[in-house]
Design a binder for these strands. Structure first.
Lengths: 185, 185
DNA sequence: AGATCAGCTTGACACTGTCAACCTGCCGCG
DNA sequence: CGCGGCAGGTTGACAGTGTCAAGCTGATCT
């Protein structure tokens, strides 16, 4: 099952660790190479420069993201509403605990988001949310999942789910309340 | 009225131009200094390093952002629903046409978002949206503006409003439809 | 056995942010 | 009036970065 060169995997893991420890600024090619025990130019044989490494890490992040959504859904019971709430909670928890990966997945400008390597896990994530929204559709060509995804993503990106909400907001409302309000339409 | 040193203003304008032309990677201290016609170390006398310049540009971006929302609202007539739609459309248009500034305002990790320089315009932006949401509140302590802001921001950040939507989506739904759906609750 | 080549190293280059030292003209004050 | 201080600009240097070119090396295939 190990088809990918071991160094490539080691560099991805080193990059994830650097990102978690020192934020996006600490994730450099040379540091990743140093942590993997190779010379500074070795990564060039496995990634197309820094953007390549970041994109590979983003792809890996989408994998664990989809898995997080899946387990959050499965752990929320059988009620459709509870399942959708669980998925959104998983989304917010992932964004808060893996802020670096989250930033890489969605907003880091160096990542090539058209890379096919992102496709499988990204599509799976979308399908998980889409499927959970289906019981709430009012008519067949409903696009409720876009509303939910936009809202939960905006809620996470704006920082409502972190300990430091934007300044105009002393106490941000809980996302679950917003979701219930949206589903009541 | 000109209380700020002229070079500071020139550097901010140069930075905005660099950002618009070459994206976030092109916005460097040295290039901004070069374009302003000063030496590479001159910016240090007006900003606390690169994060300082980026934060100042973000503050400037919030100014024009608030102004954009305001004119979008005023140009949408008197109907509360039309006004809210106009504001959201202004939000999405700003995000699409000033992607660099938008990224700086909300997601660039180098920007110090607790800088008080961001406060006035950011608070004004929030108040504009909050005020436009008030007619739709069902009970006094409603937080509808958080729902709307999260949704429109997520919609913009996920790229639905750009010519290249995320891959699972061939034809993203129009945001105005999502907003109507939310308001129907 | 010998050619091939992926994978890694070394070395160099341009570019970046940042710091220290220095210059310079202006402004306030003795 | 003279002069000290200093905001604001310069030059020069340094470490760190991404990226490229050249070379080495060991396994693999013919």
């Amino acid at each position: 099952m190990i088809e990918t060169p071991p160094l490539r995997e080691a560099l991805i893991q080193a990059g994830i660790a650097l990102l978690a420890e020192g934020g996006p600024a600490a994730l450099t090619l040379r540091q990743a190479a140093l942590r993997a025990g190779v010379s500074h130019a070795a990564p060039a044989h496995h990634f197309s420069g820094l953007p390549g490494l970041l994109t590979a890490i983003a792809a890996r992040a989408f994998d664990t993201f989809a898995q997080t959504l899946q387990t959050a859904r499965d752990g929320a019971g059988d009620d459709p509403r509870a399942r959708l709430h669980g998925i959104c909670q998983g989304y917010l928890t992932f964004a808060a605990t893996h802020a670096g990966l989250f930033h890489l997945m969605f907003t880091a400008p160096e990542v090539d988001r058209r890379d096919p390597a992102l496709d499988p896990a990204a599509a799976l994530s979308y399908q998980i949310l889409q499927q959970a929204c289906r019981p709430f559709a009012t008519h067949p060509d409903d696009r409720l999942e876009v509303s939910v995804w936009s809202m939960v993503h905006g809620y996470a990106a704006l920082g409502f789910c972190t300990p430091a909400p934007p300044r105009p907001m002393a106490k941000p409302p809980k996302f679950s309340d917003l979701l219930d309000e949206l589903l009541r339409s």
